[in-house]
């Protein structure tokens, strides 16, 4: 019985599906949605913008809010009574997810994100997580 599930999410359809899948397959599990902010971007504007913010934690929370709101919507739609926790990490998405995964029994992640630029600058996060995560990983497509 899997009781602690980590669902890394970003603004993409694939991660929506990952959460939907996790809710369906692990209805009684405690699900944590993880969002990584300040990931690499074309000219590094995103990360530096955060680093220059007056209050890093608050700025990170603002960036993550739409993602978490979306996640709560999905939970509400699924009529699940799953408890949803949220967590924010900074920097390199794959590394942050892998570090965090230790505390969970399973990671459920979407295959890839949308844009070419993401693929070029961030790389395929799901692939790296599959390769290096310390726990089983479910890749949703």
């Amino acid at each position: 019985m899997v009781s602690r599930v980590l669902v890394p999410m970003e603004d993409s359809e694939m991660s929506d599906r990952a959460l939907e899948y996790a809710l369906e397959v692990y209805p009684n599990a405690e699900i944590t949605v993880l969002h990584v902010v300040g990931e690499p971007s074309q000219m590094w504007g995103y990360a530096t913008g955060l680093a220059l913010a007056d209050d890093l934690e608050q700025a990170a929370a603002e960036h993550a809010k739409p993602i978490f709101d979306r996640a709560r919507e999905i939970v509400a739609d699924a009529d699940g009574d799953a408890e949803l926790e949220t967590h924010i990490e900074l920097g390199n998405p794959a590394r942050a997810i892998i570090n965090r995964a230790n505390d969970y029994e399973t990671v459920v992640i979407g295959t890839h994100s949308g844009s070419v630029a993401d693929l070029v600058f961030v790389g395929n996060v799901a692939e790296k997580v599959v390769r290096s995560a310390p726990v089983p990983v479910v890749v949703v497509r």
Binding site: G38, P40, S41, Q42, M43, W44, A47, T48, L50, A51, L56, E57, A60, I88, E89, L90, G91, N92, R95, V120, F121, G123
Partner: peptide, 23 residues
Amino acid sequence: DIPKASDLFDPSTTARVILMQNV
């Protein structure tokens, strides 16, 4: 657990961005 701004500047990740600008 406290997010550190320096986590945003990981050398290998920044190197990747600069490298990719050469594609």
